[in-house]
Design a protein around this nucleic acid. Structure first.
Lengths: 182, 182, 182, 182
DNA sequence: GCCTAATCGAGACGGTACGTCATGTCTTTAG
DNA sequence: CTAAAGACATGACGTACCGTCTCGATTAGGC
């Protein structure tokens, strides 16, 4: 059923993603779906957890912090082009329209991802020359790190280009090394 | 009718904002609404144009670039707390779910606002010590300037704090003065 | 406008006969139609008066009563095949659905036509060998004279054949000559 | 739902008989009605089949043909005063306005009723002194038998009086006994 | 190996909103 | 000053999904 929901979202968009449609596509009765999820948003939250966790994971590497950040940001940029990225866009979008979706999304996937991002960022910066950053500082840096990419994708609706990745990465490294001034 | 739509959105949320509801609230026939707008999204696009233009305008000032940026970012942050900001959140959200909404929003309000942002940013930076930035550079800077705020609001669902405003403003000024390395 | 209404009725049927349609077809504003008639039924009543009076008139002749009746009944049968007959069918039909239509139709056209029928029948029978019939008797005979034809057309929806015309005519003449037993 | 439709027709007339009204009166969703019938006419056709079959049935009796005919015609006359008769009037009326209604009505109820009428008439005449009539002749007689009553009710909008019943009955018996001259 | 019980497909049900159509009234505009 | 053009409030249309609810049929598991 997750697969059916996922496919329909990508094929026809969120508006055409109905419980009846998913049921028919999955060859299942509506009631059976309601047994496990209480809405189509709930289904998407599940598919997101399955698919996005790995795609947004911080991969280990031997390079310096700036290079590592670039690598990760490119992964994030690519993620938005994939089906799982479409699901995330849809959920982030729906969270703007519905408080309950927002709460579920933020209490679940987004909170966990934030933790992974903070940890990943700290680990990466620890490999550099500087003193590294504490958890609170890393948390602050995440908005600066991801914000420009999300803005480009969600607000402008354009793909993230290399220049934005590079500038953002360089900038965050600079800030991190200059942490006291943050 | 714009007022009725606006009120209902803020009071009850996007899902409960129906054409029938707007019609009833405005004391107007559904047909009359359809005569002028083809969907509730269309109505919101109109209210956005009316209300958000001024709220997101770059106000003149005598202060230096960094101070000016902070002032503007605080206005942006405040905007998201107002009704007009709710409308914008809703439209940005719906744009993630519906290609047509995305196209309308970006071809209209967002494009114009982007132009105002680029012009405002350039004007502000021109008041500083540095050489200022050309249009293309300013355009690139806008993602970095606004991205963190939008991320905080749309993704995290939290209010923009003073610290984020200050850091972002300082960072963009630094980058601008260091433009060749952008 | 009568012409426009008439044409539309025949072309597309009663359901598709709307005030808006008539106005458009006649190149006239709706309001102008409402100035003269209060409904589409009212318009049809007018076209009926214009067209049906002559088609259902009793034509003079030199033949005997039975022949004369046959002639007249054939005219009635033919009338139902013409556009004016369609109007009459529509109005009689609508009169079953709407008391007001029924009242207008019966107070106007049908009452006058009934008078013409009674007079026509009496004149015809006066040419025969028998003693003729008085007005009340003729009035009673009219249901027997026209009923079978109307039944065939309105209820069965089939055309009136020669046999029905002949039998009905013969029968009414017989009855008329046997008036005391009526 | 048949009951709700029936009641509303009698109470408020055909024009005020709406799918929404029926749904509300029956405490049922519109969609449920559309699941089973495709229009209000379809519903009325069903109520007619249920109610009119018996009211228009030919009842057995021991009397002679003329008396039997009178009995039956009086039943027909009474039928038009009942709710089921209102339904029939409405359907016959609407059949004049709409080809599809006409086709449904004639292919269904009217065809069956015609068969019952032919059979009933033949059975009655077989009880008389004469030779009886064959099926084709009986079919021709039905227009003459029912036409006057229908004319009085549908066209004149007046109740059927005893005189019309008696005259019509006598006349059909006479004709039947004189069948060769038909 | 059978019978009971739970599960699941199918889809009917009472609802709500959709977007469209025609109504009859009204205002505005052009000749 | 009239009449076209058409905006307006109203209300029904027929459709799509919603979330809940019965139905049988089909499995499985406990005896």
């Amino acid at each position: 059923m997750l697969r059916a929901a996922d496919d329909l979202l990508v094929e026809r968009g969120f508006a055409a993603l109905t419980m009846e449609g998913i049921a028919q596509r999955a060859g299942v009765a509506k009631q059976t779906i309601y047994r496990w999820w209480k809405s189509k948003v709930d289904i998407l939250l599940d598919t997101l957890s399955e698919d996005a966790r790995e795609a947004l994971a911080w991969q280990p590497g031997e390079d310096d912090p700036e290079e590592g950040l670039k690598r990760h940001l490119r992964r994030v940029a690519d993620f938005f082009e994939e089906p799982a990225g479409q699901v995330m866009r849809a959920l982030l979008g729906h969270a703007q329209l519905d408080e309950e979706t927002a709460a579920s999304l933020r209490a679940g996937f987004l909170r966990e991802q934030r933790e992974r991002d903070v940890a990943g960022l700290r680990a990466l910066l620890a490999r550099g020359d500087g003193p590294g950053v504490d958890e609170r500082t890393a948390d602050r840096l995440v908005d600066l790190l991801l914000g420009p990419l999300y803005h480009r994708v969600l607000v402008c609706g354009e793909p993230v280009d290399e220049e934005l990745v590079n500038t953002t990465a360089r900038l965050v490294v600079t800030l991190a090394n200059d942490a006291p001034g943050l």
